[in-house]
C-alpha cells in the first residue's frame, strides 16, 4: 500500500455499516461532508456545510464532521469485508455530501479500496468538473448518480444549481464508467408527475443507461433541520403513496429501462 495514500485527509460525518438499501449487497457507506447543492428535501442537512457543526439530537449536542485519514476510514471499511463477499457484490460506497468535492480524499479512498479487493460505489450529484470525475472513475465499480429534474429552472429553484453541468457529465459518465445507475428522488410538488419522470427516463435511455431507481421522498431527516437551527421547508409535503410510485415505475419500465423502487 502506498503510504501517502493512507495518510490523505478528508472530512466525514458518518460511517454507516450494514447498509443494505444503497447499492448492491451489504455495504459500508462513508458520508463525506460538504455539498454544492442545497436540495430542499435533503435528508442529511448536516452533510451540506463543509464546516464542522454542532447538531442537537434529543437532549444531547453532537459534533457533526471529523477530519480523518484514508487509513482510518479503510480500517473501518475492512471490518465488514466478509459480509461484502458473502452478499455477492457488497463493498464501500462514498456518499455525502458530495464526494467529488473532496477529490484527493475520494480518489485515495477509492483507489485504496480497489487495491484491497473491495468493490466500490459512489452516490453523486455529478455537479463537478468532469476532470475531477474522470480522476475517480477508474476506481469505481458502480456510479449511482442523481438526475433530479430535466427542467433547468425547476432544478435551480429546488437545488440552488442548474442542471446543465449535471446532464453534460451524465453523458460522459455513461460512456466511461463501468456501470452507471440513474437515481431520482421522487419528491411531491417537485418531480412526481409521470411526464417529469418520463423525461428523465428518456434522457437516461438516450445516453445508454439501462437502470434507473426511484427513491420515494421520506422525512426521516426532518428533525435534523431543527437540530441545526434551520427551518425545514418541505414540512408540508406528504410521502408519495405506494400506488403513485408503482405508476411512476411503470413509466420508467415503459421507456425500456430496468426500473426499481428504492436503492
Amino acid at each position: 500500500m502506498e503510504k501517502d495514500l493512507l495518510s490523505v485527509k478528508g472530512r466525514v460525518f458518518n460511517i454507516q455499516r450494514f447498509s443494505i438499501h444503497d447499492g448492491p449487497g451489504v455495504r459500508t457507506i462513508v458520508f463525506l461532508k460538504g455539498c454544492p447543492l442545497r436540495c430542499k428535501w435533503c435528508c442529511n442537512p448536516e452533510s451540506q456545510e463543509w464546516e464542522i457543526q454542532k447538531m442537537r439530537v434529543g437532549d444531547k449536542v453532537k459534533t457533526v464532521g471529523k477530519d480523518v485519514t484514508v487509513g482510518e476510514v479503510i480500517e473501518q471499511v475492512e471490518k465488514d469485508r466478509i459480509y461484502y463477499r458473502r452478499s455477492g457484490f457488497g463493498g464501500m460506497t462514498l456518499s455525502g455530501g458530495e464526494c467529488t468535492w473532496q477529490p484527493d480524499f475520494s480518489e485515495a479512498l477509492l483507489k485504496t479500496a480497489k487495491e484491497n479487493g473491495i468493490t466500490t460505489a459512489i452516490e453523486t450529484t455529478a455537479y463537478a468538473e468532469i476532470d475531477v470525475i474522470r480522476r475517480l472513475l477508474p476506481y469505481i465499480d458502480t456510479v449511482l448518480m442523481d438526475i433530479k429534474h430535466m427542467n433547468e429552472n425547476k432544478h435551480r429553484e429546488y437545488t440552488t444549481k442548474d442542471n446543465s453541468l449535471i446532464l453534460d457529465n451524465a453523458k460522459i459518465i455513461a460512456r466511461e464508467a463501468k456501470k452507471l445507475i440513474i437515481r431520482t428522488p421522487v419528491v411531491p410538488t417537485f418531480n412526481d408527475t409521470e411526464e417529469e419522470i418520463r423525461e428523465i427516463a428518456e434522457f437516461a435511455a438516450s445516453i445508454g443507461v439501462t437502470e434507473m431507481h426511484l427513491l420515494p421522498y421520506h422525512r426521516i431527516g426532518s428533525d435534523k433541520y431543527a437540530g441545526l437551527g434551520r427551518r425545514y421547508e418541505m414540512a408540508h409535503i406528504n410521502v408519495p403513496e405506494k400506488e403513485k410510485m408503482q405508476a411512476l415505475l411503470d413509466v420508467v419500465n415503459a421507456v425500456g429501462l430496468k426500473g426499481q423502487i428504492g436503492g
Binding site: 443494505i20 438499501h21 449487497g25 459480509y83
Partner: peptide, 22 residues
C-alpha cells in the same frame, strides 16, 4: 424492514454466513 424484499433476505443470509465465517 431489514428483511424486506429479496435483497433484504440476501443481506440477512450474508450476515449469517459472515458471522459463521468468523
Amino acid at each position: 424492514s431489514a428483511l424486506e424484499g429479496r435483497s433484504g433476505l440476501e443481506s440477512f443470509v450474508a450476515l449469517v454466513r459472515g458471522y459463521f465465517d468468523r
